[in-house]
Design a protein around this nucleic acid. Structure first.
Lengths: 152, 152
DNA sequence: TGACTCATGTCAGTATTCTGACATACATTG
DNA sequence: CAATGTATGTCAGAATACTGACATGAGTCA
């Protein structure tokens, strides 16, 4: 009752979490029939766009720890979706790549996820969509290091 | 130090996840010194705004399952942050409430989280902030049930 | 060259969350 | 009233992600 709390209905942070949760749920729903988790999909999508990404880079891109991504990569490698060289070309970094099977598997998942994203954008004008990009980037920038007084 | 900006930044879904992840990380950083997790804090904040919320309602509000919230509530009850009646006034629903200790604990956390949210909003104009609300609500609506062709 | 720092891949254990299951309580419907 | 459907609280086991730790390779600096 006092004023110590944050009004959740007016909190942009809460709304951000709500939207992210709704997106994740929607993605899980369309990926489940394909036998794929969100992290699983994220890994494949990242590799499709940037072949040769390392385990640690994939982990950062999928917002998990490198240990978690390592377990996933070993499973994907075992099941023939991904390949990694037995020895590192340079340093310890093992560049990962999609196999043809991995690419094929990704195509179905990618289409399903794209449909979800289209649905998410369906109620927005083109102006709002570009505003959304700008605003989210601003939030990320401000949260990452310190103040972020400079939005651009 | 392979530095690489990932092209996936063209996806609003990815950006949404990125922002949500950054927010969660920032919240964890300020809550850790208080010995509190994000879910822990969310539960207390929900109870402060809506005293008497049930376990299941708290779970939905904090975006976890009711089983997970139940485990948390039992711990909070054991440690004296929350109270629940021994028997349900009606049905099986046990209305939870903050103890004075719980309220006090929340006040510190709430201040810390509020600072994070202020930081997140720091680079945005007032117009952008209200646009952010509208846009996020639109996304949530469209993702929840089907099309969401009606944005306003 | 050697000391230092940083990032990486990986193993192991811990922690957290979820799924499955059950009994119970209320509302609805016939 | 009885049958059904929905929602709840809770226990137990499974899945998932995280923290800690170690060895290794590369870059930096004196």
């Amino acid at each position: 009752m006092s004023q110590s709390g944050i009004d959740l209905d007016r909190s942009l942070g809460y709304l951000l979490k709500e939207a992210s949760s709704a997106l994740r749920t929607a993605m899980e729903e369309v990926l489940r029939p394909l036998g794929m988790s969100v992290t699983h999909y994220s890994c494949l999508e990242l590799l499709a766009q940037r072949p040769g990404l390392s385990n640690s880079e994939l982990a950062r891109g999928a917002f998990v720890t490198r240990q978690t991504m390592n377990v996933l990569l070993q499973a994907l490698e075992r099941d023939g979706y991904v390949t990694r060289p037995a020895e590192a070309p340079v340093g310890k970094v093992l560049p990962a790549r999609l196999t043809p099977r991995g690419q094929q598997s990704l195509e179905q998942a990618s289409a399903a996820v794209r449909a979800v994203e289209v649905r998410m954008l369906s109620g927005m004008t083109e102006t709002e969509r570009s505003a959304a990009f700008r605003i989210l980037r601003s939030m990320i920038h401000s949260l990452r290091d310190g103040d972020g007084n400079d939005g651009a």
